[in-house]
Amino acid sequence: MSYQLLVILSFVLFVIGMIGVAMRRNIIIVLISLELMLNAVNILFVSASKYMHTLDGQMFVIMVITIAAAETAIALALVVKVFKTVGMVKIDDLKKLKW
């Protein structure tokens, strides 16, 4: 696959993730969309690393995966606690704080 196609793929994935974060109301789906955004970053790093003939990009991917895993762990812990107190995991139920 050519380099340009991979860059376009990663950009499209990033935009899809962004739309998912903005439009979906279920927190779990929002978290999945966030993962999609981070994986778009990974694709760009790996393809750029191949194109540039440097290994740095592939090293960064491991760090990005670590960050994504840590973020998801904390997010899911919060989701569990929110589910226990509110009884739902929809964004619209988190509306005690306004303006």
Binding site: V7, L38, L44, S47, I67, E71
Partner: peptide, 13 residues
């Protein structure tokens, strides 16, 4: 974080 990382990846590319 995702925006920041994507920006960094673009500059790296």
């Amino acid at each position: 974080t995702a925006f920041l990382l994507y920006g960094i990846a673009l500059i790296y590319s």
